[in-house]
Write a protein that binds this DNA or RNA. Sequence first.
DNA 1: GACCAGGCACATC
DNA 2: GATGTGCATGGT
Length: 213
Amino acid sequence: MANPISLIYEELYRHFGAQHWWPAKTRFEVMVGAILTQNTNWSNVERAINNLKKNKSLGPHKLRRLPRQKLARLIKSAGYYNIKAKRLKEFLKFLFESYQGNIKKMCLADTQELRRQLLSVNGIGPETADSMLLYALDKPVFVVDSYTKRILSRHRFIRDDEDYETIQNLFMQSLKKDIKIFNEFHALLVRLGKDACLKNKPRCDICPLRKMR
DNA sequence: GACCAGGCACATC
DNA sequence: GATGTGCATGGT
């Protein structure tokens, strides 16, 4: 298991410790959060989620009944609120048409089939689909996000224009197919990415990965 | 006031 | 098929 990718994992885990992701109570809350967090700071998403909870709307049936305009108002803090309200409605339409609004049924489906279905929903791209699969449905899929790309390309493990699937395959072929590791690793990469040291500089002297350059 | 944040779809060339 | 643009709030 001594490949560069698993060494990165071990180094980040040693440095930051467990991240306890995804910060949500239910599978449905994870899926809603996955759409709301698109290109948006998590603290803004939390306000939106809390508004949905206060309004007692954070469940498949309740959210489906909520008018789109009302939904948009409640999730305003998450930014792009009109488009995200539309995307949530598209997702709910899929959830009810394919699984009768029942997430347990969704869990029973084949991973690759589910991924293909999620990607066919307008507003759900690879990162959102994979976040749902891993963090809501416990499927062994690695989530690639902008931090993952940036960190790996800064450290010269990938080209900076490498595509999603290639990066995902790199992780999935280098690691044990274990949802706990996939969960923790992605969260650790986000944790590292949030560190100021990597933001606007190609290198940083306190980066826990500096030895691996 | 500029810049950024746990993307994605769509237009245009 | 690559590249550009709209979507929008709240923190630094």
